[in-house]
């Protein structure tokens, strides 16, 4: 038992949990907003992958991680446009459209990366190094864990707070919630549903792009094909557990990040009680349980995934 406590209450473990939580936090916040607006994105994974790719290209071309981030956002938004047109303007099936986004993103990024860099020449690009925050980073345990993270962590937490406020305290947020719960009612007061949903979706794409960049520029400083490795699906699950609330998305992301950190620790031989796969499976099982409870109490946006065509 003592062993476990020393493992979990250690700077290294908490730092790893937080590091793993950054991409799914960003993507989860974005997806929470998009789903609040009534658009579900099975293609979140693809948006992230495009973001990861765009960020590496941008950073490689400009030599600047921030410009790389901008490129990543741009790539994610770009690849989301057909999905938005199909699911918002045409009223097509959002699920199937999202599957198509994932396929295109995976194929296109793999192809383009090889086209640009060849197979052998892995670029090492400028990324986001951990940032030591003066004073706070000297705190015991939590200091090195929380306050020596890349700047993206603080951006992600900040965006979670901001978008929580946007969602519940501002006009666009109110409209998004109405668009996801009762688009016909929104339409009847003279606000175009499609424009409202586009806003939520593009925001989600931008955040997913940042999430992808957080993987490529925040962890590996290069691009590897399919490097998101299912993080987009984790983020989709996260949104359910977080009950479509950006604030909760922060917390759940860290919890899911911890599951990944545990798995890494097990693989490194630190824990032998359970197989690491069990730890990686836990977020999905937890999501199923929470969803089973939420399906009854009806927390999901009521018009989620339903096209609104006049």
């Amino acid at each position: 038992m003592d062993d476990l406590i020393t493992i979990f209450w250690s700077s290294a473990f908490i730092a790893a949990a937080i590091r793993f939580s950054i991409p799914i936090m960003l993507a989860g916040i974005g997806e929470a907003i998009s789903e609040r607006g009534g658009v579900i994105n099975i293609g979140l994974e693809g948006m992230m992958l495009a973001g990861a790719f765009g960020a590496v290209v941008g950073s490689d071309v400009t030599g600047n991680a921030w410009l790389g981030l901008v490129f990543g956002i741009g790539a994610a938004v770009l690849i989301t446009l057909p999905h938005g047109f199909i699911s918002i303007n045409l009223g097509g099936d959002q699920i199937v459209s999202g599957v198509s986004l994932n396929l295109v993103a995976l194929g296109l990024t793999t192809f383009l990366f090889r086209q640009m860099f060849g197979i052998t020449d892995q670029p090492q690009v400028e990324g986001f190094e951990p940032l030591e925050i003066p004073v706070l980073s000297d705190l015991p345990v939590l200091g090195p864990a929380v306050f020596s993270q890349s700047i993206l962590f603080f951006i992600a937490v900040g965006l979670g707070l901001v978008f929580w406020a946007v969602l519940f305290r501002t006009r666009p947020g109110l409209r998004w919630r109405a668009a996801g719960d009762d688009p016909a009612a929104l339409d009847s007061v003279g606000i175009p549903v499609s424009r409202t949903r586009w806003g939520a979706l593009l925001l989600c794409a931008a955040l997913a792009g940042m999430a992808g960049a957080a993987i490529s520029l925040g962890q590996l400083f290069t691009f590897i094909e399919n490097m998101t490795g299912g993080a987009g699906y984790v983020a989709l699950a996260l949104v359910i557990v977080a009950r479509w609330n950006p604030l909760w998305a922060i917390v759940v992301a860290v919890a899911f990040g911890a599951a990944e950190a545990i798995a890494v620790r097990i693989q490194a031989g630190g824990i032998t009680l359970i197989p690491y796969q069990l730890s990686l499976m836990l977020p999905y099982v937890l999501t199923l349980v929470v969803y089973a409870l939420a399906a009854r109490s009806g927390h999901a946006p009521r018009a989620l995934g339903k096209p609104f065509v006049k």
Partner: peptide
């Protein structure tokens, strides 16, 4: 127009529904 089946978003509060219909509201509610 007041509809037979009202056009209120039932998951929102009464004041939020008022706010939703306000023309040119400020950014913050």
């Amino acid at each position: 127009m007041m509809h037979q089946h009202d056009m209120l978003v039932s998951t929102l509060t009464v004041e939020e529904n008022f706010e939703l219909a306000r023309p040119r509201p400020p950014l913050a509610l």
